[in-house]
Write a protein that binds this DNA or RNA. Structure first.
Length: 275
DNA sequence: TCCCAGGCTCTCT
DNA sequence: AGAGAGCATGGG
């Protein structure tokens, strides 16, 4: 069972099960975390800088208050969910293999706007370049805080022009980012409302944004709205389904389909699964 | 170099 | 409604 203690401005977690920082932060669901030369993971999320490190089942959150841990990071890392129990329920042997391979992954509960914007950028793109574009987005239009820059708000982006966004070098995606920012900041799309809405309604609404199709909408919902039952299908997943599951979705894609999807994605990527 | 990337829009059947 | 080209850019 998870044990949490607070010492010297640090938050220390002991006895954590099914959590691996590297797997969780570098599995392709978030694009702003980096490991420094001393092994510390650093990033900015929800407007806050965080540095953390893992030693086996012990995780240290540096310079973190009890309030920030309880109000922000506990939910961000999905610590309330029992992943071990979920993995135990998997019947399909191939899915079980993928799950055990990536059993330290947790589905991050990211900011909804950041997830939406990040996955708009992700389309027809590769992960290193996605990270570069997101980095430039934050450095140019985010707010400077200790440790780096925050993710810019939709309001901020909506106030910019396509020419302003040229510094991102995001190609044809710039006009999509702008349309999303305008719809979100004007209230035409209310992300907080969608968080509490039915998946189909939410998806339909997100897809009214220019440049947002089913896959991007599903990623925004899974990674930014806590809709854990959504199963985004991209090229990697398609390949994996062809290769491992004979073209069909494994039956375990039920209540926790999004978690299963991430296990499959990570497994496919790490093992360089190709056609 | 050249292929392709956590897709989507538009056009043409 | 289904298939296919085009899209911007650059990582490997």
């Amino acid at each position: 069972m998870l044990e949490i203690s607070f010492q010297n401005n640090n938050v220390i977690i002991n006895n954590i099960d099914c959590f691996n920082i590297a797997q969780t932060l570098d599995c392709g669901q978030a694009f702003r975390w980096e490991q420094d030369s001393n092994g510390y993971w650093c990033g900015i999320a929800k407007g806050k800088f965080l540095k953390l490190k893992q030693e086996q089942s012990k995780v240290i959150f540096y310079d973190t208050t009890k309030e920030d841990f309880e109000n922000i990071w506990f939910d961000y890392f999905d610590f309330s969910r029992d992943y071990s129990k979920i993995i135990q329920t998997i019947n399909n042997p191939l899915l079980k293999t993928a799950a055990q391979f990536g059993n330290g992954i947790r589905i991050l509960r990211q900011d909804s706007w950041e997830a939406l914007c990040s996955f708009i950028i992700s389309q027809n793109n590769n992960i290193p370049r996605i990270k570069g574009i997101v980095k430039r987005l934050c450095e140019n239009f985010g707010k400077k805080i200790y440790g780096g820059y925050t993710f810019p708000t939709a309001q901020k982006i909506a106030s910019l022009s396509l020419e302003d966004l040229a510094v991102l070098r995001s190609g044809f995606r710039a006009k999509y980012i702008l349309d999303a920012a305008k719809k979100v900041s004007s209230g035409e799309i209310d992300l907080d409302l969608l968080i509490n809405s039915d998946v189909n309604f939410s998806r339909e609404k997100l897809m009214t944004i220019y440049g947002v199709g089913k896959k991007v909408a599903d990623c925004a919902m899974l990674y930014g709205m806590g809709k854990i039952e959504v199963f985004p299908i991209d090229v990697w997943i398609k390949r994996a389904l062809e290769n491992l599951f004979d073209g069909h979705l494994p039956e375990a894609t039920g209540e926790f389909a999004g978690i299963m999807q991430q296990y499959i994605f990570y497994y496919a990527q790490q093992t360089k699964l190709k056609i």
